[in-house]
């Protein structure tokens, strides 16, 4: 057992966990942040994607202890109060989700993609970059639309800041 201290969604947290505990289980089981999902056991599906120090990370590939001292953002931490993050809004407006299980991971990956590519995103790039996230419901068509839509919303939002 060890005590892990980190920042999650802007709040300092501390948890006593077994050494083998993965970051995803720290989030789900210890912090009750169940928006981060587990869809596989081989780090393929991306349902567990969160941001660690601003970069998208599959939280099932990382030990909780490795996240000590980091700042972690989960799906629960991206809206500003009642105001959805532009990526969340774009997923809803473009029907980019059905059962919703892959959605938190998709949204967290997609935000990272937009951050990395800025305005230079096109359909092929989005499809390629989403390779690490599996969705069984949507056929990706509307997810791709949502990401491209959000990319332009985020550009506008940035320009306004």
């Amino acid at each position: 057992m060890s005590t892990v201290k980190l920042t999650v969604n802007g709040r300092a947290v501390s948890a006593d966990v077994e050494d083998r505990t993965l970051l995803v289980h720290l989030l789900r089981d210890h912090l009750n942040l169940t928006g981060t999902h587990v869809g596989c056991d081989t780090s393929q599906c991306g349902a567990c994607t969160v941001h660690v120090d601003g970069r998208a990370v599959k939280s099932c590939t990382m030990l909780a202890a490795q996240a000590a001292g980091s700042s972690v953002t989960t799906i629960e931490g991206i809206a500003k109060g009642d105001e959805l993050h532009p990526m969340q809004a774009a997923f809803r407006d473009n029907h980019g989700l059905q059962c919703g299980f892959c959605t938190p991971g998709m949204i967290m990956s997609a935000i990272d993609i937009v951050h990395r590519y800025g305005g230079k995103l096109d359909e092929a790039t989005v499809r390629h970059e989403l390779e690490g996230n599996i969705c069984r419901c949507t056929g990706y068509h509307n997810i791709v639309k949502a990401v491209l839509d959000a990319a332009s919303r985020m550009k506008v939002a940035q320009a306004a800041e």
Partner: peptide, 10 residues
């Protein structure tokens, strides 16, 4: 139904 899914509250 989307709001709860996109905010991690499913």
């Amino acid at each position: 139904e989307d709001k709860r899914f996109i905010t991690g509250k499913g």
